[in-house]
Nucleic acid binder design. Structure first.
Lengths: 163, 163
DNA sequence: TGGCGGCTATTCACGATGTGAATAGCCCAT
DNA sequence: ATGGGCTATTCACATCGTGAATAGCCGCCA
């Protein structure tokens, strides 16, 4: 996405930057990139180097770009995935200088809004049926979801300030 | 802990109740109970039944009880684990009629308090060094941690009301 | 000059973990 | 009598991540 890359180099970069959020092992990144190739999301070309082992240089395909951008734009379905996914998206938005962060934020916020609405109806139901435990569980989830919404607002504000 | 149990029966119970929080497959529960036996946390006795296959009845040992109670009391180190762990603890506190929930809550709260303090010093540092991304990441984590603290207060209040 | 440590780059073998399906006997309904 | 469903356990397999192995080349220091 930011030009051709080989796993080793990408790992060095990620380990310093994205690695603070999304810890990924070297061998794991190799496996993912190999899989991306098998799925036709990237093409691989072996490039010779001077005084170093050959590199398996990966180039993203149209299908790969599409998949990546869909992932960048789309909201995370599960609240617990936002921690990893949205913070990673944020990293890529900044790293690649992409725009559309505002859209991604609003999409995620509206996904969270319906999630919260569902949780609140569940909470009301649990309260009605005196299911204290279930009510607490749902309140936990609502609390988390609301915290993410509040953070997304901070996120937009910060980004707006920068632009 | 609530008397002897065999995996199949325990699964039926968990699947209905705890399963709403901690989804665990049947084969997975079997594996865990087998491992508990291997680690000396439970003893197993094969019991014959009338018109049904034999049961591998598990009985918790002293070591197992100790381990379980330590887990019940101790806070989750990572905020993201609280979702699963603390809600499971809450389930067992209620299911087994144990007391000590207040202690577990305060322990978790103080663990979160130091976590939040560390995050805030990190946020200040990131702000100083103009590392916007890292600041947002840390603010995300603080936001989550604070939401859990707020929920823990609700949790205590609810439980207090019941007693 | 010789060899040792460290860097680039990739691969491999393994362990943990979870899941669907297989197995097998028994009961009940049609 | 027989097919479906329940109790109960096990198996084989896919996924996923990790540490270590491999291998060539470079620079450093004795």
């Amino acid at each position: 996405m930011a030009g051709p890359a080989h796993p080793y180099g990408l790992y060095r970069e990620f380990d310093r930057e994205l690695g603070r959020v999304w810890r990924i092992g070297q061998a794991s990144l190799y496996a993912r990139m190999k899989r991306a190739e098998e799925e036709g999301l990237a093409t691989v070309e072996v490039a010779e180097t001077e005084g170093a082992p050959d590199r398996r240089v990966h180039r993203i395909t149209a299908a790969g770009k599409e998949r990546f951008l869909a992932w960048m734009g789309g909201p995370s379905e599960r609240v617990r995935d936002i921690r990893l996914e949205f913070l990673s998206r944020l990293y890529f938005f900044r790293r690649l200088g992409l725009d559309g962060l505002e859209d991604a934020v609003s999409l995620q916020k509206s996904a969270l809004a319906s999630r919260i609405a569902a949780l609140e109806s569940g909470i009301a139901g649990a309260a009605r049926s005196r299911d204290e435990y279930w009510r607490l569980v749902l309140e936990f989830r609502r609390s988390e979801a609301k915290a993410v919404v509040a953070w997304l607002d901070v996120c937009i504000a910060t980004n707006g300030r920068k632009v």
